[in-house]
Amino acid sequence: MRWGEIIRRVLLIPPTLAGVGLIVFVLLRVVPGDPIAMMIPPGASAADIARLRALYGLDQPILQQFVVWSGQVLTGDFGRSISLHQRVFELVLARLPATLELALLGTVIAVLLGTVVALIGAYLRGRRAEWAIDGGVGLLLAIPDFLWALILLLLLGVILPVLPISGRIDPQLDIAFGTNFYLIESLLTGRLDVAAALLQHMILPALALALPFAALVARLLKAQLAEAEDQDYAQVARARGFSRPAILLRDVLPNALIPTVALGGVQITLLLGGTVLVERIFSYEGIGNMAIDAVINRDFPLIQGLILTFAVLFIALNLAVDLLVTLLDPRLRHG
């Protein structure tokens, strides 16, 4: 990717976010559901309701509300959560690391698993065992992440209770963390026992997020591997006495990764979106789980803050994927 392209993409970020903000803001206010109705005790007077409405600025015209909110957001003030009575910015910032760590772990598992399966499938090309790989991948792909969450929870949490099924860390463990990136922090500071305890909690939700994405990676990459292996450079490598596994790893895989990342990279956003339901199922304290509560409570400021956060993450992921493709393909680097 050239510098001009990068600058163009960065310049497009503010209008994109403004658009997302406007759509969410307006949609929240025109669909049925009223945060004030959720807060008031039974039997509150009409005057009290009107006062509460005015307190949150909800009595103003929507466009005017949007202008006020946008102005605050530009100064870094995302408002106060109606249901949690705290600043939205601090709430999201406290929970975001948990989701990022979970999504990262899920992505790592998915990429490793998908790559291994794709390589095995490509190696078995033309043999009967290839069908088994394709069938397994198809099955993995057909089951959505939240269903995997329930299946894994039932299998490894209930029927065979080997792993914890809720939360981010054992509540009996009293550990102080300097940041909210618990896993990364404990790995960096060498507290491996803490990391192990965290991983025990994360592995099931991470697997649930990873399995459909792993299947996607496996399917895409396997097709690209087969195509790359038919190219002259791979054939010629065989005539030089290299073994098939060596050629697959050294010549075919680096070439097949380029279109796979370009096509499949943005699908990580699906995995990120999956955190909403999966975190809920495992009571994992991330922003996905928080988003569900925010919606249930019609917590307008919190919903807006969370959607903007997801939007920023999606944009960042798209940029990262394009950069990665450029990094993998020397023809684009010099282009």
Partner: peptide, 19 residues
């Protein structure tokens, strides 16, 4: 192969690994 018997392939544009 590659040591005692070697190949000069037909198409130089596609016979080298591009990456």
């Amino acid at each position: 192969l590659g040591r005692r018997i070697a190949l000069i392939p037909q198409d130089p544009m596609t016979s080298l690994n591009p990456v």
